[in-house]
Amino acid sequence: MVRFSNNLIGILNFLTLLLSIPILIAGVWLSKQGSTECERWLEKPVIALGVFLMVVSIAGLVGACCRVSWLLWVYLLVMFLLIVLLFAFTIFAFVITNKGAGEAVSNRGYKEYRLGDYSNWLQKRVNNTNTWNRIKSCLQSGKLCSDFHNKFVNDNVDKFYTENLSALQSGCCKPSDDCKFTYQSPTNWTKGENATYSNPDCDAWNNDPSILCFNCQSCKAGLLQNLKTDWKKVAIVNIIFLVFLIIVYSIGCCAFRNNRSDNWKRY
């Protein structure tokens, strides 16, 4: 009689196999239909995830249901490595996102973001020219600032200053408050004549919709703030997923022992 643990591992891996199919299809779709560099960049990780889930789930399914001990052993080894990697990534995510936060500005509904407030590891990533050019291309193709302009275009200066802007909107689509530019519209500001600025972002600002503050340190800081918020959410989900993986791994170990016990009885 097939043991309960073998049945349960078989069911869980069958569900994982079903899950891998739409993930794989989504990756292939992105490779064919992706219209932006961001979408095309996602295709390889999505396809790799789909293939990985499919292969591992087949190994677990066959190993548990067909009582193939060596295949179940490979499955458990992969699961163990996945648990270790996920645990390490979760700790890493909490450590590098511990630093950094928006700076409240007097009489403003939004916050200002400084690149130096974030972890050195994250700063090095966004300060890499090739990396930032790809990120900048994604932000531009995603119409971040054009949507920002359309949303607040009817605001006068007093109303605009009370808006609750996102980190990316504040960092990339408008100049820093340090610059003291004159407001014309959300993405159009007038620089003072012959003015000198201590903040290099003021010189980097340009009213050209394709430039704005995408070359500013504040834009990189806004991205890191966004990333920090998302990574903390991912880390919490990872903890839940980690507990689930440990439970599945424990059940898999029971199934493996069952297989070995049955094999010994045959001989």
Rank of each mutant, 00 (worst) to 15 (best):
A93Q: 05
L49D: 01
S261M: 13
K99W: 04
K32M: 08
D117S: 10
P22S: 03
W189P: 00
K233Y: 15
F94E: 01
L81F: 12
K111A: 10
V51Y: 03
C179Y: 00
Y161E: 15
N263I: 09
S185I: 07
V74K: 14
N263A: 15
G171H: 05
L245N: 14
N6I: 02
I239Y: 00
N263C: 05
W29L: 12
K180C: 08
R260S: 08
S119N: 08
Q140N: 02
Y161G: 08
M54T: 04
S176C: 02
R134F: 13
N6G: 11
T229F: 06
G109H: 02
F148W: 03
T90S: 10
L223Q: 11
L17V: 03
T90N: 09
K32V: 08
Y110N: 08
F181V: 04
K151E: 14
L19Q: 02
V62M: 01
A221E: 11
I236D: 08
V78Q: 05
L49K: 08
I96H: 05
L224H: 04
T162Y: 04
L85P: 03
Y110E: 07
V248G: 03
K174G: 01
D155K: 13
I247G: 01
Q169S: 13
D178Y: 13
P22V: 03
L19K: 02
V51F: 08
G100P: 03
A26W: 09
S5M: 05
L30C: 11
I58E: 13
D201I: 05
W132T: 03
S35V: 10
W205E: 05
T162C: 06
N156E: 14
S146V: 07
T187P: 02
T190E: 15
S146K: 15
D201W: 12
N98F: 09
P186I: 06
F214N: 07
C145Q: 02
V68T: 09
N207V: 09
Y249L: 11
S106I: 04
A195R: 14
L53C: 09
L19H: 10
E43K: 07
I247T: 02
R266W: 08
R114Y: 14
K124R: 12
L115K: 00
A255Y: 07
D178P: 01
L212K: 03
D117Y: 06
W41N: 15
D230R: 15
W73E: 09
N133M: 11
G222D: 07
V126R: 02
W264G: 01
F241E: 03
K265P: 03
N188Y: 15
I96R: 01
L8Q: 05
T90A: 10
L165T: 04
I247A: 10
L53N: 04
Q123F: 06
W41Q: 14
T16N: 12
S185L: 08
N258M: 04
Y75R: 04
Q140D: 02
L165W: 05
V46P: 04
C213M: 13
L85R: 07
R134P: 00
L77E: 00
V74S: 06
G100C: 03
L8I: 14
S119I: 13
S57L: 06
F241D: 06
